[in-house]
Design a protein around this nucleic acid. Sequence first.
DNA 1: AAAATAGTTGACTGTTCGGTCAAATATGGT
DNA 2: ACCATATTTGACCGAACAGTCAACTATTTT
Lengths: 199, 199
Amino acid sequence: MGRTSDTREKLIETAIELMWRDSYNSVSVDDICKKADVKKGSFYHYFPSKISLANAAMQFCTRDMKSHYDNMFSPTRHPLDRLDLMVEYVIENQKEIKARYGHVCGCPFITIGSELAAQDDAMAQTISGILDLKTAYYKSVLKDLVDLKLIPADTNIDEKAQDIFSFIVGQLTTARIRNDIGYLENHMKQSLRNLLGVA
Amino acid sequence: MGRTSDTREKLIETAIELMWRDSYNSVSVDDICKKADVKKGSFYHYFPSKISLANAAMQFCTRDMKSHYDNMFSPTRHPLDRLDLMVEYVIENQKEIKARYGHVCGCPFITIGSELAAQDDAMAQTISGILDLKTAYYKSVLKDLVDLKLIPADTNIDEKAQDIFSFIVGQLTTARIRNDIGYLENHMKQSLRNLLGVA
DNA sequence: AAAATAGTTGACTGTTCGGTCAAATATGGT
DNA sequence: ACCATATTTGACCGAACAGTCAACTATTTT
């Protein structure tokens, strides 16, 4: 019933671009509306507040991430291939985002999560859950590496998964600050292998 | 000649607390003035703009960091002791800041650098330089470890230093988002050893 | 075609934003 | 004591902020 529209999607898409590239607090509702070519009244027809749009944007990013990761981390692949694929995807993704948005952006969950960590409890909780989800992919890889006897059986899987995740977060965040994905491109795959300590 | 005052220092101290804990863009000049008990006119007597205060705050943090790191990374210490000391310092520092500010804050250079990466070029450049400085400490450790034959002579020092730095950045940033230093406390020292691959 | 529904619009509010300024005030050096 | 100088103050500015709302329009369902 009534008319249909893609305004909600346009707002989410624009919010992702502006908030991910710049930041949550430096982007205004007016900025988003202007870029999305949506009037402010429409904005508040779809979202009760600025933070609720940010939440919807994070939800969108999560779905997108999940669909890529579910594919890349499919148990049908060799565990080492999964990690290689992931590295390639991350690099390609960062490259494309840089071309589209004009700046290296890093990980949206980390940049927005870090900014809002002390400002919005609900957002911090949500993003903490997403970080758990990401480390779960690494845990499955590590378990399978143990089964294949490619890493020691006494490997602390939870710890190692956290280490891998931290390493990648650090790489992406410094790439954002430096606005340079050179290091990612040249060393990330090798560094990750070293970190795994695979035979 | 004329009157003296510690207003400038009070403003810097307050800016560090608010901008590090919350963020640059969510903290207003008025917020800082109110907390520092300084009138806005005085603020602009000492700083021409909000961003120039942030720069002064980063400069203050850099001096503080340098003095601690120069001591911990003194060549008179065993290289592995240097890293252990650094981990202990980071944990103690995060604990104290959490107690003082009411939230885990992570690394000030990373959180503020990430937020302003696409917003303020000069700040991004400044902070990139600080990141270089930090990795230099790790390079000196790695060189000495090679000399002591504790890691292979063909170790790619620049790459490994970057890896160590990325790992720590990732740990601190996730600790900030989760508002929890538990992982830092329990696993960081061990994980760093694993990352080094020291015999 | 009419009614019900969903989406759009632009004008509006009160507040906060970063920043300015002239006047007032306190203090160090001579 | 005096004066040059550094600091403090509070009122002020226009712009931008998040959010509101009632009127209006388009479209789908019946």
